[in-house]
């Protein structure tokens, strides 16, 4: 299973014909205890780089940008109800949204796991 990462610490994972998007484990650790998550409704469309979601810790609010263009097919209401899940399993159960990509070639420019690990260690 291929996972790609952005410089804004979002991950994109192919799952069937959609892409699962969330914030990286590293980003969740940097954020600290997540207390609030706001996700877009299914059916909304985004261009790569648009403000897509919000994640807030006790300390601060952070925007989550759409890592790829496309239409939201599902938002993970479990993390809206229990934001702390983001700290527990950021790259697993605590995914943010599933997107139907309009231009899968956008993934080509993203980092793979090894490149991201190096990037995260330096940031």
């Amino acid at each position: 299973m291929t996972v790609k990462y952005t410089k804004d610490h979002e991950y994109v994972r192919a799952e069937g014909d959609v892409y699962v998007i969330g914030v990286s484990k590293h980003a969740a650790e940097q954020l600290g205890d997540v207390v609030f998550v706001e996700l877009p409704d299914a059916g909304k469309t985004f261009k790569k780089g648009d403000d897509m979601a919000v994640v807030e810790s006790v300390k601060a609010a952070s925007d989550v940008y759409a890592p790829i263009s496309g239409e939201i097919v599902e938002a993970n209401s479990a993390i809206v109800d229990e934001p702390a899940k983001v700290n527990e399993d950021a790259e697993g159960a605590a995914w943010f949204v599933k997107i139907r990509a309009s231009d899968p070639a956008e993934l080509d420019a993203m980092m793979d796991e090894a490149a991201y690990a190096e990037f995260a260690a330096e940031s």
Binding site: G32, D33, V35, S57, V58, K59
Partner: peptide
């Protein structure tokens, strides 16, 4: 120090 490994929530 802004936080220790316990984290802001736990420390609070």
């Amino acid at each position: 120090p802004v936080q220790y490994p316990m984290g802001v929530m736990g420390e609070h």
